[in-house]
Nucleic acid binder design. Structure first.
Length: 271
DNA sequence: CGTTACCTGAAA
DNA sequence: TTTCAGGTAACG
């Protein structure tokens, strides 16, 4: 569910709430058998208990809790995962894991669809080793994006969604970035002109930064650790605006299936 | 490369 | 009843 702006919002909030705290108890629900990867849930809980949270990082859509003695507790929320801090109802029907901290606070992992995953590893490359560069990082240059596009004949939207190409872009912000860059999502990546690649590079950063400023988008399930919605879904230009008028040309936004995902675009403005 | 599976619901 | 859902791994 959450993409880079949502996961980064969660990271920033949780950093303030849990840094320096020690995990005093960990619980994985038996109805979430696929939640913990690689090791058994009991070993995961034993491994986390008693450990201090030293930092909270993010890579792509992964949250990385740096805990004592070099271990990383990694979390991927997939479609419907939430990490809530002291929620009003800590025993709701979709609670898949919970963690008690030494200040009495509770971190609750809620996930309707059970796609979310967690790891406890000493080598983070096991989890995030294959990810491409951070689109808001220094290494994400125009030259890098152009090189990426030139090597792929797939539709440009499929490349934006490929986490090994660029880390953190999902279905909302792929559609929004392609609209901002006026590029048709079906265009083969290697067919983009130099100016089009330049527009796309700027659009990716602008769209992600704006959404981050709005604390993400809450179309359906996304809530921050305090249970609040983001604000960016109120500002999208094409995502889930099928048959509504394009803000630039007033013609209806169209929806197609691409790379297995619903894809929204303006056929007149995006070529 | 584009489908299919993983889950559970909400919306059409 | 059918389709759709901020994701991604595993298929063919």
């Amino acid at each position: 569910m959450p993409e880079l702006p949502e996961v980064e919002t969660i990271r920033r909030d949780l950093l303030q709430l849990v840094r320096g705290r020690t995990i005093t108890d960990a619980f994985i629900s038996p109805n979430a058998p696929r939640l913990v990867q690689i090791i058994a849930p009991a070993d995961f809980c034993r491994g986390l208990t008693g450990r201090r949270i030293e930092d909270v990082d993010r890579r792509g859509k992964y949250l990385l809790f740096r805990v004592a003695r070099g271990l990383t507790w990694a979390v991927h929320l997939r479609m419907t995962g939430r990490l809530l801090h002291n929620p009003a109802e800590p025993d709701g029907p979709y609670v898949r894991a919970h963690f008690r901290l030494d200040d009495g606070a509770r971190i609750v992992f809620v996930d309707l669809r059970k796609f979310g995953t967690m790891w406890l590893v000493d080598d983070e490359s096991l989890v995030i080793g294959a990810l491409g560069p951070e689109p808001l990082g220094e290494s994400f240059t125009l030259a890098l994006l152009s090189g990426l596009l030139a090597r792929r004949s797939a539709p440009v939207k499929a490349v934006l969604l490929d986490q090994t190409a660029i880390a953190g872009i999902g279905n909302i912000y792929a559609d929004e970035a392609l609209f901002a860059a006026r590029i048709n999502p079906r265009r083969p990546a290697d067919s983009l002109s130099r100016p089009a690649a330049r527009r796309l590079h700027a659009a990716i950063q602008e769209v992600l930064l704006t959404a981050l400023g709005d604390r993400g988008s809450s179309f359906r399930d996304y809530l921050d650790p305090s249970g609040r919605e983001g604000g960016h879904h109120l500002k999208v230009k094409v995502f889930r605006r099928t048959e509504e008028p394009c803000y630039d040309c007033a013609r209806p936004i169209k929806r197609i299936k691409l790379a297995g995902r619903s894809t929204h675009f303006c056929p007149k403005c995006q070529r």
